[in-house]
Design a protein around this nucleic acid. Sequence first.
DNA 1: CAACCTCATAATCAAATGATTATTTAGATT
DNA 2: AATCTAAATAATCATTTGATTATGAGGTTG
Lengths: 109, 109
Amino acid sequence: MSRQLTDPMIDEVRGLFSALSDTSRLKVLRTLLESKEPLSQGAVAKAAGLSQANASKHLSYLVRVGLAKRDPDGNTVYFSLVMPLVSDLCDLVCGHVSARAKTSYQALR
Amino acid sequence: MSRQLTDPMIDEVRGLFSALSDTSRLKVLRTLLESKEPLSQGAVAKAAGLSQANASKHLSYLVRVGLAKRDPDGNTVYFSLVMPLVSDLCDLVCGHVSARAKTSYQALR
DNA sequence: CAACCTCATAATCAAATGATTATTTAGATT
DNA sequence: AATCTAAATAATCATTTGATTATGAGGTTG
């Protein structure tokens, strides 16, 4: 985001972060992170508690912005995450969130 | 995002990414990144091309999720970014975006 | 204290976004 | 070929979100 953040680039960045700013899509990411192997769309939908159509749209979104990969095999389509990008984002953001949680907890005592 | 991504935590993470998924807020971040010093709200608004009320809301959003800091001095309020979190996020995401841009450009030749 | 400055807040409106239901496409199976 | 399954797409609706305009609250300066 730092150097040369041109206006068209801002739009790309916005799209990527938008992909991460929805509860359902984060649940999809969590599901795929916790699974070591690629999962079919149906498996993702079930594990994340989403309807079929909903899971399809969210997974497409993640693929479009480059956070997930699509891997069709016969009838079913397998999805997996793009690493290490996603895990890096995880570590950064989760670290920040839990650090904030800790300090705001300590502020209560 | 990886380990122990509980449901309440997902909501926090969502809030953080939502803060980054808006063009105006990204312009605010860019403005603050390019400035070495904290900037008053008015300065941010002008540099980012936002109205006063709009800048106020967006800056409050960034502060609320812990991406920016507020520093009132007399009449004016100075804002700055929380480092190194923001620059780390920048590097990660901008790297990804420009890498994708490059490969999709090469795909055209 | 009165006029002024900087920022925050409230109300309103238009636009974007996510969920649902239904339908369609493509591949597999009988 | 007919059927079944998995996934994508379309249409619709409710909700969320961002921009604008106007106003209010603090602090500063003449």
